[in-house]
Design a protein around this nucleic acid. Sequence first.
DNA 1: TAGTGGTCTAGACCACCGC
DNA 2: CGGTGGTCTAGACCACTAG
Lengths: 263, 263
Amino acid sequence: MTFPATLSGRGPKYLQIADQLRAEIQSGELSPGSRLPAETDLAGRFHVSPPTVRQALAVLRSEWLIESRHGVGTFVRENRKRQRRSRNRYGRARTDKRLLNDALEHRIVFAGRGPVPPHIAEAMGVEPGSEVVIRRRHLHDKATGQLREIGASYVPLSHAAGTYLEDATVVPKALFLCVEELSGKIYHRAQDTTVIRAAERDEPGLFNLAGGEAILHLVHTARAADDEVLEISESIWPADEVVFIDEYDIPKHGENPTSRSEI
Amino acid sequence: MTFPATLSGRGPKYLQIADQLRAEIQSGELSPGSRLPAETDLAGRFHVSPPTVRQALAVLRSEWLIESRHGVGTFVRENRKRQRRSRNRYGRARTDKRLLNDALEHRIVFAGRGPVPPHIAEAMGVEPGSEVVIRRRHLHDKATGQLREIGASYVPLSHAAGTYLEDATVVPKALFLCVEELSGKIYHRAQDTTVIRAAERDEPGLFNLAGGEAILHLVHTARAADDEVLEISESIWPADEVVFIDEYDIPKHGENPTSRSEI
DNA sequence: TAGTGGTCTAGACCACCGC
DNA sequence: CGGTGGTCTAGACCACTAG
């Protein structure tokens, strides 16, 4: 029998049940994608009331181990293939002339003028609500159609107003190369700010999350040599789908570091 | 009256209650650190049963907005002061000869030989369980005493065996300078791997978390010019306490990028 | 229609904390 | 001690999905 009907008696029942099920998941007895027994079945096997089972499942849900589909069942979460991102997006793009991940489909969901949101205005050094050119994108997994990333780019009117950046067509090359062309200025220095926060508003629905899940939110500010902001872009992922891998040279003794440390 | 007794009737009651309370928190009516009314009080005011109130509070807890203390009450979470980390820890350390954050107290909780854990062995390219010199550290907030970061460094025996790195005394300068001295090799290139995962094992207790919270886990691998691993270190934070701020130069056209992109 | 998970009730008793 | 949140029960009814 897969699920012992006995609880050892140490600690709360719902935690013991969660421990049992977690062990079965991690041992592979319950494999990714497989369905758990119905809540009423689990209640019977563990000799507890249904709400207690639900409490145990809530624990596993908060650990990102299972997900429930209303009217269908509760399933062991698939190990979603993790994306790999570098914080330095310019290195290869400058030579490859492309920035896009081949496994993702790039959909521009909005392009045009709009008010700059507060957290971007701050980084841009302008009044919140000022008009800028905004390009919003959704990146979908080509295989499954699942939304994997939400992004937006904000370019000052001075460089983007009236240009093709206001058209919702996919830019044929990396956005920063377009901005360099249009502005006549060169991207010189960047700042990336990364935070992890709880999912809010429509994000759980968009990403098909249980709710209350962690979101990774990156704001990227690119400046010209004279410190003028050329572009701010932000990217939003379900935090558990992302791995950052960064490789970089370590400054030698006496060498001027290319990154200012913020520690 | 702070808490209206009426629910608009749209959607589940527990979500409406959560929305009400969230609005009060975000408007500042319920300020950080202040106590919410007791669950039974809330049940009375909203005319629902106590379990329904608990469900609403569970939502806010998963959004990291409140925390409950058994026997005391439920409180609006303080905005914990966020740490700022740069991926490039070497820039300033090479000139300042220090790596430590002044607001944090560095406690070495273990130093000596031990088996290398699996996720480190992989990055190090050795058998899991091989012996290495391990230095484990806890970083506490000097003001509050709260644990803010767990870290560990792993140095191959070939460079650290029998040296002062096996003593649990705080190293007077940055660890990498010690390893450079002891090994006679220079840190040349680094890789940082960052993931966000659910808290596991004893982490909720150590960090005083509600459970199921997001953890940020960074593994840093430093290599010499000949690709030999000189040191691997890992850092673990409650994800909501960390902001990464990275500044870096953007490679010019035709310039060899210092970071290899992983996109 | 049958079976699933989602919402909600009205209690009970326990464990913890501060006074 | 009184008040708090934590655990648990034994139901009821609804909403969703699949066949």
